[in-house]
Amino acid sequence: MRAYYFDNQPGDQRLPHDSSRAVDTETLNGLKVEAWNIPLTEGYEEKLNAVARERAYKNRDVITISKEGLGDQYEEKIKGFYEEHIHEDEEIRYILAGGGFFDVRQASTDTWIRIAVSAGDLLVVPAGIYHRFTVDEGNMAQAVRLFKDEPKWKAIYRGAESDANPHRIDYLKSVAAAA
């Protein structure tokens, strides 16, 4: 996993868009974003299960984002994942194969931080943070999605509704308190 400021240059969302300005773990932690690597070696399932128990994740599924799997819906789906939004639950992903980019908004500056993920990376994006996702140029990502309750994925796209959402307000309070 590698984090850096997004370069804001036009071009395919699947490109690295690397500004060459690295973002350290302390900055991510200040945003309540957590990330670590659990190598896909023997025993990784038990390590992932331990994280799930510790964080009270009760359910999981596996999602594969690829041209082969999504067919004609592929381009539409990746554009939808890339639209800026929040969730009312943490978004936790453990990458099994392929790779992509999670972009998160730095609350204090409204700038994008890009987090490049690949196999073995585990990322926790807090409820209420503006973010988006895209696969990388390999056009495939497979991930375990972990959920506290029933599996759901409801995006609340950026606007008046998301800005007034209690999860967004709580998130902003939590990062202000940490500053």
Rank of each mutant, 00 (worst) to 15 (best):
A116L: 00
E90Y: 15
G11Y: 11
G138A: 12
S20C: 08
A35N: 05
P10H: 06
M1Q: 05
A119W: 14
H85P: 04
N8M: 09
K79R: 15
Y4T: 00
D103P: 06
Q13M: 13
A56T: 10
N29L: 09
A119V: 05
S19C: 02
N59T: 12
V175R: 01
Y44W: 15
R93K: 07
F81M: 08
P16G: 02
V62Y: 10
D163W: 07
D12V: 08
D72Q: 04
R105Y: 06
K32P: 01
E68K: 11
P166I: 05
L28I: 07
R105S: 06
Y94F: 15
Y5L: 02
A143C: 11
V62A: 08
R55V: 06
D163N: 07
F81G: 04
T109V: 01
E83P: 01
T27L: 10
I113R: 08
A97R: 15
L40I: 12
V135D: 10
V117W: 05
K47D: 10
K47L: 14
L40R: 13
M140D: 01
L70R: 10
E46N: 12
K58F: 11
V104Y: 07
R168E: 09
Q73L: 10
G138F: 02
V144Y: 02
D170P: 00
P126N: 07
T134M: 00
R132G: 01
W36R: 15
V124T: 11
L96E: 03
A177Y: 01
K79A: 15
S20N: 14
